[in-house]
Design a protein around this nucleic acid. Structure first.
Lengths: 244, 244
DNA sequence: CGTACGATTGAGAGACTTCAACAAACGTGG
DNA sequence: CCACGTTTGTTGAAGTCTCTCAATCGTACG
């Protein structure tokens, strides 16, 4: 059930900062064209110069680069409320691609509309800047994982991250949330092979930490999963109250 | 020879965007306390709430996280002109540390001064936003390297990156530039062991691609190094004319 | 002139990969 | 609603890139 454009934005902004009543209602002014996109399709490709930003209303997106030999690296997962290509406002040429991992509903908001909105509501511009900075914080944390953590810890860590972020925008129920990705996607996100992800996922499952199947993540032992991944959500810079 | 605060900023901004004459002279208004820092010292630590941003005037910095077991991951190298903790303007708590790799000269500019400056010169605020976005682009590229490239390619790639960035701010002469890092630093930046970095560096040297010693990087075969690393500098989003 | 840090070398081990095959799940069209 | 092709998940075995341990060497510096 895709949320409305303004509802998605409100939830997102309130997860990382505060909105005044005026600002909250101002979000209604932001218009975009909503559009369904099926799974495994590109929304924006490396090298393009988009003229609009993408707000994810429902589904699951990722940003990725593909090497000449076909190997790929997924650099981030995106959940409803995210604007994964906000950067295109200030960086004209895309240096990576944005695509769907699951059937999704997106809203395209023209750059011009965003920039005009920023001029009118500078605090929201700052919130967006903050959001892109948090984006960077997530990249850094992933680098730590890929560079220095074992496969077991790495996988546990992303699962923790996705769960906490989903929870922060109200998309987790108890200890369950959507996570419609294949094992291959996880492999490409963490710099592993799909085969090894499969085996490690089984370990995590056998250890009772979590269960990931059919696109649904079930956290069996939050404390254990957290410890396994060495997860500390501080880098997500969420407003208090979102840490489980 | 450390540059002046405004000279460093001017070079930096002009490497990633355009400055009007008025904006260029406005940079003189930005004041900061300059301060020498010796090698291997922390400037800002994870968990702190800095009240100023750090402009690097000379030397070499890095951002890093240290895991509980002592292993560390360096997430970025910083060269003169960079403001590595600009993000602290909008993200109060540091989620990583900033430190020196070599003796450096830094300028500390209070947050209040930066924010006031942004209000007065919104175009420069946008340029700074752009800079933090490029920061993110570099993180993404490093993720590709750590996740999907061989040690040989990974090392070649960072060397290319540092060289191009140094060149963009006028700090490379012909095919030589400073790069005062230890092999251990490179290892921690690329998710490798120091031993393996040593051996791989020897390979690169024997292949005539480069020579890195005594803190100086000498590029022996730019085309070869570039090819070895699969390097394409587009992600640095420099203004035209900086690609060798 | 000792001490400490960084670079270098050798040898053995291990985490993860690749290849290959098969099973299960999924979507799609007849 | 079932058949069928495609994608995804699973398993086994062999291989390799990179790691760890450990010792040696060089060199800058107090």
């Amino acid at each position: 059930m895709p949320q409305s454009l303004s509802a998605a934005l409100t939830r997102k902004f309130e997860s990382i900062g505060a909105l005044s009543t005026a600002q909250r209602s101002a979000l209604d002014d932001l218009k975009g064209v909503t559009k369904p996109v099926s799974a495994h399709e590109a929304i924006v490709r490396e090298g393009e110069r988009p003229a609009a930003v993408t707000l994810l209303l429902s589904g699951f997106l990722c940003r990725q680069k593909v090497l000449p030999d076909g190997r790929r690296q997924i650099m981030s997962f995106h959940i409803p409320g995210d604007i994964p290509d906000l950067q295109s406002l200030f960086i004209d040429i895309m240096d990576h691609s944005l695509g769907t991992l699951a059937p999704s509903m997106i809203a395209l908001i023209p750059h011009s509309a965003m920039l005009a909105f920023f001029r009118r509501y500078p605090e929201i511009a700052s919130l967006c800047w903050r959001d892109t900075l948090i984006d960077g914080a997530v990249f850094r944390e992933w680098m730590v994982g890929i560079g220095r953590r074992s496969a077991y810890a790495r996988i546990a860590h992303v699962l923790c991250e996705v769960f906490v972020r989903m929870r922060a925008v109200g998309l987790a129920r108890d200890n369950v949330c959507d996570m419609p990705v294949t094992q291959s996607d996880i492999a490409d996100a963490l710099g592993l092979s799909a085969v090894h992800v499969n085996r490690t996922l089984q370990e995590l499952r056998n250890d009772g930490l979590m269960d990931l199947r059919g696109g649904t993540l079930m956290v069996g032992d939050w404390g254990g999963l957290r410890r396994a991944g060495g997860f500390d959500g501080a880098y997500l810079h969420l407003k208090d109250g979102h840490a489980p």
